[in-house]
Design a protein around this nucleic acid. Sequence first.
DNA 1: CGTTGTGAACGTCTTCACAGCA
DNA 2: TGCTGTGAAGACGTTCACAACG
Lengths: 253, 253
Amino acid sequence: MATGRTHRPATRSRGIPEATVARLPLYLRALTALSERSVPTVSSEELAAAAGVNSAKLRKDFSYLGSYGTRGVGYDVEYLVYQISRELGLTQDWPVVIVGIGNLGAALANYGGFASRGFRVAALIDADPAMAGKPVAGIPVQHTDDLEQIIEDNGVSIGVIATPAGAAQQVCDRLVAAGVTSILNFAPTVLSVPDGVDVRKVDLSIELQILAFHEQRKAGEEATPDGAGPAAVTRRESTDQGPDGDVPAVMPA
Amino acid sequence: MATGRTHRPATRSRGIPEATVARLPLYLRALTALSERSVPTVSSEELAAAAGVNSAKLRKDFSYLGSYGTRGVGYDVEYLVYQISRELGLTQDWPVVIVGIGNLGAALANYGGFASRGFRVAALIDADPAMAGKPVAGIPVQHTDDLEQIIEDNGVSIGVIATPAGAAQQVCDRLVAAGVTSILNFAPTVLSVPDGVDVRKVDLSIELQILAFHEQRKAGEEATPDGAGPAAVTRRESTDQGPDGDVPAVMPA
DNA sequence: CGTTGTGAACGTCTTCACAGCA
DNA sequence: TGCTGTGAAGACGTTCACAACG
């Protein structure tokens, strides 16, 4: 099968690096918090600390968007919020459907972080006839039979899959056939999609496994080799979690 | 704020690259599926397809673990499952606590992917007194007041935070003070932790925002510039989601 | 002969360090 | 003077392509 490059073959020098795109939501969140506290301007140093990255990286990231700062001063908070929102496409309304309303699907339906970012849960879909009509997060669950109609009626282009692994590919195929071109997959399966469709995956157990790997290493160091030891009290604001590997990462923000 | 290097300063040539570590769980999942179908051996090409990566990358990844394949034949499925499990530290039992038993916390408690990978939900903790004693996923919820005692009694070193954003840092501080050294954070906040503590974050709305970015670009291309057009029917198994910026990486230390 | 394991080339991301500007 | 914006250097990750070997 194809390699699964991360989007745009390589062409287009006008493109914003993927690594930068993945951090924009982080900056946006920090900026929104500053905006709510009515902070007018912020330096790259301050904003970087709030977002959990270093300032050089942040300035480099912003340089891909344009020159939105003022030397000697910093960035205008409101203006940056707008520019990043626009770049991310959050100034428009994105109707999304969530398929698979189990524990996770229900949690996603109730998640406030979606609505606050221009995402609107247009419909909840489940294969269990007993669920049909029941309201979850104030939205009545609809049956899988109507999936195609729902996608079309609501002009949905983003779908969230929260079904068991066994149903994911089938649901994915139907979503894509109905016109969905972006999928957020919570099922522990590799989805196969046609070119032009983006998939991001979030796998809860993968994250834990990565933590276990590092945890295991720590245990093997007991008596710390170097001076300081594990009791050093410096604080980090680390957000970096390194490369993903592919999905990598959905990381929800 | 600190730089947030991806772990181990740079020392140790014996280290496995973070990008590789992040993919090991993917390989493990694919191998487990093969194992259940009693497939004895698999080639890098086949396994790569099942895991959604390309075969060169897979072989390179495995080369960091050792020479576990047989030229002309492929890899022994059972043997690889064992080696990867060991490398990830999954041959031991990891008791974890989940703090914040709302919709998401409950979904995590019910998530089967944990138990099947050596992770044991040792306790569920919530700040709401009304929740205390109520069973979720068969485990009685305990009150936050007992957090330190619970961590100690169960020898917990991995904690999952599924609280609202406002409570996350405080919970994090208490977990760390009680001895937790790895944290999986679902709250949309940048956690500040001492050196030696790993944090990985999963942010649901960030993933959607990244999808929205690409979705927006697609819309701006309507009439495809190049020959093929968006209707090309080749299938990908794409898993790549590019760099995270956050998710993907543990980082800390 | 087929497939692994890997050096080398290449591309991407991060960090440094400082020129340029308000 | 202070902070942004960025070229250049370096670290890291991916892909190529083929020698090595069962």
